[in-house]
Structure formats: C-alpha cells, structure tokens
Amino acid sequence: MLTHLRRAVVVSIVLFVLCGLAYPAFETGVAQLLFPHQANGSLTRNGSTLAGQAFSAPRWFTGRPEPVGASPDASGAANLGPRSSLLLKDVRRTAAQLRRAGITPTNDLVTTSGSGFDPDISPTDAAAEAPAVARANHLSLAAVRRIIAQNTTGRELGFLGSPRVNVLRLNEALARLEHRPR
C-alpha cells in the first residue's frame, strides 16, 4: 500500500507538470504566435465579436433577449423548461416588445441562448429587424438589406453550423453607413 501511495504522489506531480503546466503553456505559446487575435478574445474597437451585447436603442440591430443582459462574465442559460409558465410569459413579453418596435417576432428573437451572450442572429432575424432599423436611421431598406448580406457568415465548409449575422459587426457596418455623406 505504501508503494502505491508513493507512486500515486509521484505520478500526480509528473502529470501536474506535464499536463497541468507544460501542455497549457506550450499551447498558449503556439496560440499567441499563430492566432494572437483569437487567443486573446477576438477583441475589436467596440468589444469582442464573440460576445453578444445588449443593443437596445431602436437604431441598432438587436441580438437575442438574454436573461441577464449578455454578460460574458456571468455565462449560462435561463434554463426554463419547455412547459414553464415563466418561459411562456417571457416569450409573450418579448414578442410584444418586438411588435411595438415594428418587428415581426422570429424564433431566435424571442428565445434566450445557451451561453447567455449569443453574438449572432440568423439572416431571417436580421431581415425581420431591417424595416424598423431602416426607419429609425432614415436609411433605405435596400441599403440595410445590403449590409445584412455583406455581414452574413455562411456555414463552415458549407455544411457545419448555421448561417449567421454577427450583431456587433452588423451594427458597426450600420454606423459606417450613417457617417457616410449622403
């Protein structure tokens, strides 16, 4: 038994050094060398493109209705069950808010995400928001639709994941559009 315990302690130290220190340190070195932008959080001037934000003003495209207002440091889902009366109430309230803003509610825009800060909406969601956004910014619907198309990301390799529009990039494109002299 003592031999077992001694070996258990020694192997724990070996694995700590190898898998717990050397492996993540090596990966960090490689990551910082090859992909520093991604490895540090995909940060841009206005935040991370991987972190959804609560865009609430009518002039912006809005993301999904996250439970605690899209906080990456408090990640996690709402966890309401499929027959939860609270979920029913939340969906009804969100749908009513969207209608008041002149947006026809879509599936993604009335449901919360798994991460609690989904950075994307689907092209369908963006299309549903387009008329209201165009009105609020005094832009033509065609111009708004054009930037949606320009900021739509396809599936990886053509079949992995879903087509999506990054809300932060879309709103940055919208801001650029507004600052251009007309």
């Binding site: 990551a31 935040g47 609560a54 906080s71 990456p72 440091d73």
Partner: peptide, 28 residues
C-alpha cells in the same frame, strides 16, 4: 484557437462599446 477559442494567461479584460454605451467584462 484558430476558430476563436481563448488561450491566454492574461486576466479578464473590460471592453467599452462606444456605439452602444455598454461596458462588458470578458473573462479569459
């Protein structure tokens, strides 16, 4: 990492979105 997963020893970073007036803390 190439696809966007984090790999850094740097601590959380606070980011401010001037468009939206929102400040977020990104844990890393």
């Amino acid at each position: 990492v190439g696809q966007g997963a984090l790999q850094t020893f740097a601590g959380p970073v606070s980011v401010h979105d001037a468009l939206n007036g929102v400040t977020q803390v990104i844990p890393r």
